[in-house]
């Protein structure tokens, strides 16, 4: 799964291996409990992210976080949140299989995304994330570096999104 799908000097598009992925909904005032359960201080502003080793947390709505963890930790995380639910109501939904993740890296990464993403990508900070659109698909875009993005897309939209990235990578490689 980790083999480069599409690549030339300036950009590489990779299908990334699965992770444990959660949708967390909780009142911002209760965030401390969630941070404790997840073992990572959750960011408070939409667009921000926090990362530590294989844990990642991204604020994508006023009461919504996207959480990433190692696959092996999925059950433990569900259990940890189960424990605090009685006192701190929230919703933690496993969405590990809902999305597939595409890695886009290289100097032309942002340019490749600009074929179908209307955002001004220069405004997305490194370490941040944002739910947006890529062509007809809703995606979550995570910025890991100046030249490194992850794009999470619902499974059934993956062929469309990945196919477009392939077409556009060929186009970029031609340099026209």
């Amino acid at each position: 799964m980790n083999a480069p799908a599409t690549s030339f000097d300036a950009v590489t598009v990779t299908i990334l291996p699965p992770v444990a992925r959660f949708n967390l909904r909780i009142a911002p005032s209760d965030l401390a409990a969630a941070s404790q359960a997840f073992g990572l201080s959750l960011p408070t502003k939409i667009g921000q992210g926090e990362q530590n080793a294989d844990r990642g947390a991204y604020c994508i709505g006023p009461d919504e976080w996207l959480l990433h963890a190692a696959e092996a930790d999925q059950q433990a995380i569900v259990a940890a949140f189960d424990e605090v639910r009685a006192n701190t109501p929230h919703s933690l939904v496993v969405i590990s299989d809902r999305e597939l993740t595409i890695g886009i890296t290289g100097p032309a990464a942002a340019e490749l995304l600009s074929v179908a993403c209307p955002l001004d990508l220069s405004r997305i900070p490194v370490g941040g994330a944002k739910r947006t659109v890529f062509d007809y698909a809703q995606v979550t875009l995570i910025r890991d570096g100046e030249d490194a993005f992850r794009l999470e897309v619902w499974r059934s939209y993956f062929p469309h999104v990945h196919g477009l990235l392939e077409v556009a990578t060929r186009e970029l490689a031609l340099g026209l």
Binding site: P62, E64, R131
Partner: peptide
């Protein structure tokens, strides 16, 4: 001037 609702459906969802 029209008061209307929008949803940030492909963003924060609000």
């Amino acid at each position: 001037v029209h008061a209307e609702r929008w949803r940030h459906i492909n963003g924060c969802g609000r």
